[in-house]
């Protein structure tokens, strides 16, 4: 009985069409960028330029997902930086292990 009385009904805010439209717009951008990657994979010569385009588009997509879908953009600045700054270490790890891998290549072949 007491539980019944405690039960509150939350006030429902009506849909904000503009916000929902924006979400679908970003979804469209993400799908469009994936489509571009897909088309480039078959029309362009494999090589550094193509790989650079792929990595660039991937980072753009990652940015949209983190900033818009995960709402990181709306968090406190210091939270944004405490997520983004540690990722700088990854850049070093990529460079170090690519170098290591190409040295293994020279030893192996």
């Amino acid at each position: 009985m007491a539980l019944q009385e405690n039960r509150q009904t939350l006030e429902v805010t009506p849909r904000n069409g503009e916000k929902i439209k924006k979400i679908w717009k970003i979804a469209g951008i993400l799908l469009f960028l994936t489509l571009i990657e897909f088309v480039f994979a078959f029309t362009m010569e494999r090589g550094m330029l193509l790989y650079a385009i792929f990595i660039g588009l991937t980072l753009v997509k990652a940015g949209y997902i983190m900033m818009e879908f995960m709402h990181l953009k709306e968090e406190a600045k210091i939270l944004i930086w405490s997520i983004m700054l540690p990722l700088i270490f990854l850049i070093w790890l990529v460079l170090a292990l690519m170098r290591e891998g190409s040295d293994i290549f020279l030893l192996r072949w």
């Binding site: 805010t13 009506p14 679908w24 879908f69």
Partner: peptide, 30 residues
């Protein structure tokens, strides 16, 4: 790559419906 493209499409779409669920949660719209 057609099948893996389809998988990517499915996952991105499920991410979109997730944002819509979060947005509905902000509005307390059960």
């Amino acid at each position: 790559l057609v099948f893996v493209g389809l998988m990517t499409f499915i996952l991105i779409m499920s991410s979109v419906t997730m944002v819509l669920a979060v947005e509905a949660g902000h509005r307390n719209d059960k």
